[in-house]
Design a protein around this nucleic acid. Structure first.
Lengths: 242, 242
DNA sequence: CCAGTTCATATAGCGTTGCTATAGGTGCTA
DNA sequence: TAGCACCTATAGCAACGCTATATGAACTGG
């Protein structure tokens, strides 16, 4: 059995690796399996991809395109926080639909080495959170919010993948998701406003202004002024609130 | 160099494996390295531990004792939710102090196979949450709460481990922790009365920030900084630019 | 139309991995 | 002292990631 379309060997290697990975059930996939299924010998693999990790990176890159497509393909609802919610669900669905690929993407953790894909996913979420920040719905700087939400999102997805399929309880995901979104949303700040000096609304406004200024370069301030202004904004918006 | 105490070979293997693992920096540790450092040959390892995974399980079991000790050793504060908070922090600290061991314990995820240690950690947290539930401080069944919190806890810890040590920001942990604990606590004073216009622009945000800053003086900026800051805010907020 | 160059694939094999079939030594009990 | 578990060592297998080297194919300049 081999993948003998008229595709070039490089594409056959990619396809073979993806297929074997998807059916590996979590156990390792050897280069010999891949090259045999692709109908190719070892040096071809290393010629095109450098090493095994390079090949898997390429598979992951293709998988990430699917991931991004899923994260973007729904129409923005006009309610950024609702979009974040769907982003979370889409992330979990992606992980459960292709667990092995997901594990290569997000489960292959090593100390002090951050996979590029995590940064990409984080940027994607930060981008979405920026919209929420601009409309004053965020309690926390988008960057920190994105990191925090993504960390919880990955944690939940990994936990679900580790469970046996019939026992996977998506309530775990929904509950954690809502907890995280509520925590970064400005709703919470409002509910706490009674016993507060009102500083939290300062923070929310500062975060919104910060996001908006960076999105559309204002010509009201010179570049040097803007730089200093943004630095102060950052100090305000990262100050503790609550 | 070898571990040549008068310890029996089994203990020497355990010690050698733990030491090599701790210094591996995330890369794989071979049985040959371990047996050589222990001053023993291969069959000895397999006689005592069955296979490599068995040896690592034994190392993990020892590490888990440390983990449990850390999770239990603080006196119960009488405020169960506060204890959960410290449990979370202790979990993160454990992960950051021994990243490689932590990765073997919690980062070695495979589809449909739940490591026993995760169940143990979950039981530990559920036990603590039970106390909160008894005193009516819980919004959610302890079991679900434990799963959810642990998932987020692991997610955050993995994310922090993946970062370069100097860049690790524990705010990420604190924020996620509080979000999760608040979400399962009964103290939620929900106010779903947010009817935001969602139309905030730079100008609107600047006006809001301006007003808020004057109402309650922020201590993030010096008075001279604040004066200039407010002047710039005025320039922005009086512009007709969106 | 051919020589030269570059790209792509194959043959064969190196060093390392986890693991084991087999045998030998050691100490206890009968 | 004989027998018997228990423990450890010698030697080596199959599979792994990877590569030095060689061969073929396709394009390019003269």
């Amino acid at each position: 059995m081999s993948i003998d379309g008229q595709l070039p060997p490089k594409a056959r290697l990619l396809r073979a690796a993806a297929e074997l990975l998807a059916n590996s059930g979590g156990s390792a996939v050897s280069t010999r399996q891949i090259t045999q299924l692709a109908g190719v010998t070892a040096p071809t693999l290393y010629h095109h991809f450098g090493d095994k990790e390079g090949l898997f990176d390429a598979v992951v890159a293709a998988g990430f395109d699917d991931y991004v497509a899923g994260e973007r393909d729904f129409a923005p609802s006009g309610q950024p926080l609702e979009d974040i919610r769907r982003m979370w669900d889409n992330h979990v669905q992606f992980g459960l639909k292709q667990p092995e690929l997901y594990l290569v993407m997000f489960g292959n953790i090593r100390p002090e080495s951050r996979p590029a894909i995590v940064a990409d996913a984080e940027a994607l979420m930060e981008e979405m959170l920026n919209k929420a920040a601009v409309s004053g719905q965020l309690n926390v700087p988008p960057k920190e919010a994105a990191r925090s939400i993504l960390a919880a999102n990955v944690g939940v997805t990994l936990m679900l993948i580790a469970e046996k399929a019939p026992a996977r309880n998506l309530e775990l995901s929904a509950m954690t998701r809502d907890a995280m979104i509520f925590a970064v949303s400005a709703e919470q700040a409002r509910s706490n406003e009674s016993d507060d000096t009102g500083k939290s609304s300062v923070v929310v406004a500062a975060i919104a202004l910060n996001a908006a200024l960076q999105a559309s370069h204002s010509d009201q301030l010179s570049s040097s002024e803007l730089k200093l202004f943004l630095e102060w904004l950052h100090r305000i918006s990262t100050s503790s609130n609550s």
